[in-house]
Design a protein around this nucleic acid. Structure first.
Lengths: 196, 196
DNA sequence: CCTACCGATCGGTAGG
DNA sequence: CCTACCGATCGGTAGG
């Protein structure tokens, strides 16, 4: 009896996974429910049984990403030098999973438009990332671990922007871009202490 | 007699201008020839008289941008400190024209996919920008104007990535992001001499 | 979950 | 440049 529910939950997760890879290929607007359904082994009407609209599926994709980030306890590291090290580790992890990076880079760009269904999600996401980065540089500044003259507010904003921009070039360039090295290089140019 | 040709040329330019603003709202894939035609005051079949395919119109949009950049003699400034100053001026110019920034930021993200008709265009564009930035930092390094320990190759890659990422956040954030200030801050953290 | 369908919209063509 | 059309595809619904 609970089996019915379990199968449904698994099916839902399958569909979300498939959606992520289709979004990665065609973007959100360029993806059709029929294509996602086909790769999931059901009809598009069947897909709409699980997710009543195209937007509901997108929301589920974004929700899953948030819960994965939370699982990884991304934000459990307090702002500071360790947070920056953790960010490099996260970048190194992402480099092993280009498909995922691709989805979110494309979605973020599509969602620049205020009417895009993921617009608010990314606005919140950027603000959180920025606040966290700025707080980290502020902690460094207080401890004298920041090079003199470096503004924590700009350094934080630039860190988030840099990660985004590097991802696009790394995705586009087919391996010619050393994402992690570039990120380390940026951070080292701001720090008065070794990054380790 | 030449009037017919002139009118055609004007019409073509009108259509390209309209296409730019529709791309800015909906991206390339999300834009329809019918919508671009409607705003240009013709039917979509009429538009196809001037641009035989959807891709041909995209190509015309990108071509125009290149010729505008060339007109501005973007690349006439030799690599070096002046080139970086010129880049800041270009960013300040772009901040006055969010619509144009929007189109190219969205197109660049869409074109990450290798099958996208603008993929090759952006790949070339990125490579040129990167080479130019790296060359500038190399010139600075030779003149001792770069802070010791700064790698010109990473600094150049990061400069291009940073500009891209800042544009996305600036577009998305609705004015909360100081793009030009952030760019200056990045450059100043790398230089051993004042940027002026 | 499926079959069967809807109205809307798409890029492109014919033929003038 | 337009009218008129094509085949394909879209998201979503009805009804089981």
């Amino acid at each position: 009896m609970a089996e019915g529910y379990l199968k449904g939950r698994i099916r839902r997760e399958d569909i979300i996974t498939t959606a992520v890879s289709v979004y990665a290929e065609a973007g959100y607007h360029g993806s059709s429910l029929r294509e996602i359904a086909r790769r999931s082994g059901i009809t598009h009407a069947g897909l709409l049984y699980y997710f009543p609209t195209k937007e509901a599926l997108l929301a589920a994709v974004l929700e899953r990403r948030d819960s994965e980030d939370t699982e990884r306890e991304h934000l459990a590291v307090p702002p500071g030098l360790d947070a920056l090290r953790h960010l490099i580790a996260l970048a190194a992890h992402n480099v092993q999973h280009p498909g995922i990076v691709d989805v979110y880079a494309r979605l973020a760009a599509e969602a620049v438009a205020a009417e895009h269904p993921a617009h608010d999600y990314f606005e919140r996401h950027y603000k959180m990332a920025r606040d966290y980065a700025v707080a980290s540089f502020q902690v460094l500044a207080e401890r004298g671990e920041l090079r003199p003259g470096v503004d924590p507010a700009y350094a934080g904003l630039n860190l988030v922007a840099l990660m985004d921009g590097l991802q696009v070039q790394w995705l586009s360039g087919g391996g010619a871009v050393d994402l992690v090295g570039a990120l380390r290089s940026y951070l080292e140019s701001l720090l008065a202490v070794p990054l380790g």
